[in-house]
């Protein structure tokens, strides 16, 4: 028995279907079919939304990857820059240390030269300075 275009008054269970019930069942079936057909197109929209979501997810993935790569690269560059700076600072410190050492050595040399000069001046001056004293000592001995 089909409800498509005929309203048989007997149901499959062997009971008489009143025209009212038959009509109501037919209308019910038609409405469910129409509703379903209309709703059936909705999942396709949902699939499209899903695809859109996928595209967004893909784009977000790429963006995140980009950010990560940029982060890794910039960290590397920054680390390299810091290392360069550290090496330059070490070079400057070494240069300054050498310069200071040289300065100290020069100063020590100057001091030594000065002392040597003073010593020689003193050694040269003492004999003449001692002369009157030596004379006095010689006179005392004669007496």
């Amino acid at each position: 028995m089909s409800f498509k275009d005929k309203t048989d008054a007997v149901s499959v269970v062997g009971e008489e279907l009143s025209p009212e019930l038959d009509l109501a069942l037919r209308e019910f079936r038609q409405s469910v079919h129409a509703w379903s057909e209309a709703a059936y197109s909705q999942p396709r929209t949902a699939v499209a939304t899903g695809r859109r979501k996928q595209v967004w997810r893909l784009a977000a993935g790429w963006a995140l990857s980009g950010v990560l790569i940029a982060g890794v690269v910039s960290t590397g560059v920054w680390e390299h820059h810091r290392q360069e700076m550290r090496m330059a600072a070490a070079r400057v410190a070494e240069y300054e240390r050498l310069a200071a050492e040289q300065r100290n050595q020069q100063a020590r040399q100057e001091d030594e030269d000065l002392l040597a000069k003073v010593d020689s001046d003193v050694s040269r001056g003492v004999p003449s300075a001692m002369e009157p004293l030596a004379q006095m000592m010689a006179e005392d001995e004669a007496k």
Partner: peptide
């Protein structure tokens, strides 16, 4: 379509039927 229709009429929920 038929399976969807049956599930729609049973659950009366489009998302659930899908």
């Amino acid at each position: 379509p038929q399976i969807f229709r049956f599930l729609l009429s049973s659950t009366r929920d489009v998302d659930l039927a899908e």
